[in-house]
Design a protein around this nucleic acid. Structure first.
Ligand SMILES: [Zn+2]
Ligand SMILES: [Zn+2]
Ligand SMILES: [Zn+2]
Ligand SMILES: [Zn+2]
Lengths: 132, 132
DNA sequence: AATTTTTTGTTATAATATAACAATGTGTAA
DNA sequence: TTACACATTGTTATATTATAACAAAAAATT
């Protein structure tokens, strides 16, 4: 069997929901919202999420245990991700900055370990929240 | 009441255990290991962990839901952290690289949002695992 | 000593995530 | 085209991670 190149029904349902949301969604909130579409169990959601993360359609915000649609069309796979997170309103934005990604992709520490992947999360107050 | 400057008994017990470990520990593994010292419930461990993270004695490895002692004496508070994580043996090392931290502390994206905190996790294979 | 705040102990429960296994579907190749 | 391999699904149960709520004790402040 070929490696899957399209999305299965469950994956498409989950992706549609995550893409409609402007903010990260939690797995059980996704589950709740797709139950009318026939996905009844957590595993069905987690499996779809796993695959969508693997192929880079969505990313997991680790510090929030939440999932957000990829906002960067050049981001084919979740191997170099950076996000800004507002600690007040929890707004999350994917950072697409080529200098930053170049810097981090080329980063080597003293251990000589070469990294194949990174995830960076910045925290602060967004403009809106700063002016309150 | 003054802000607490010393560690309470529970915090010290948890810190001792985490510091003895060369690798990140999970909360319930900590709980199991400190039960003989009198900490019986998850909350007692989580409370200690929260405080220890807050004051920078330990850090949370978000992608692993695990806690590691700070390996950088200059790291007074968990507001600028970077780790290398081996995806094979799960060895985690705190990265202490002043160029990197300067770069990230000064990073501004196009949104104009100024960040007060970041967490960076690099993934790859450590030397040992690469040579297998 | 009275007050305030922090820390603790305790029970219960919420939230996040995976194991195990049978059934079904889909692509590959004899 | 039919047998095979393997990916995906459905389902139930369970594991893992984390917090709510509240009463009691301990420590700092007045
Ligand atoms: Zn992306
Ligand atoms: Zn905000
Ligand atoms: Zn540190
Ligand atoms: Zn390794």
């Amino acid at each position: 069997m070929q490696k899957q190149t399209f999305l299965t029904k469950n994956q498409q349902i989950v992706l549609n929901l995550v893409e409609k949301s402007s903010q990260p969604l939690k797995a059980y909130s996704i589950l709740f919202n797709v139950q009318k579409k026939g996905l009844k169990a957590p595993l069905q959601v987690y499996r779809a999420l796993d695959k969508l993360v693997e192929i880079g359609k969505i990313h997991k915000i680790e510090s929030r245990n939440a999932f957000i649609a990829c906002q960067d069309s050049s981001c084919q796979i979740s191997k170099a991700t950076a996000f800004s997170i507002c600690e007040s309103c929890e707004k999350v934005t994917e950072i697409n900055n080529s200098k930053l990604s170049k810097y981090l992709n080329n980063f080597k520490d003293s251990s000589g370990m070469k990294y194949s992947k990174y995830n960076l999360e910045f925290f602060g107050l967004c403009k809106k929240c700063k002016n309150k």
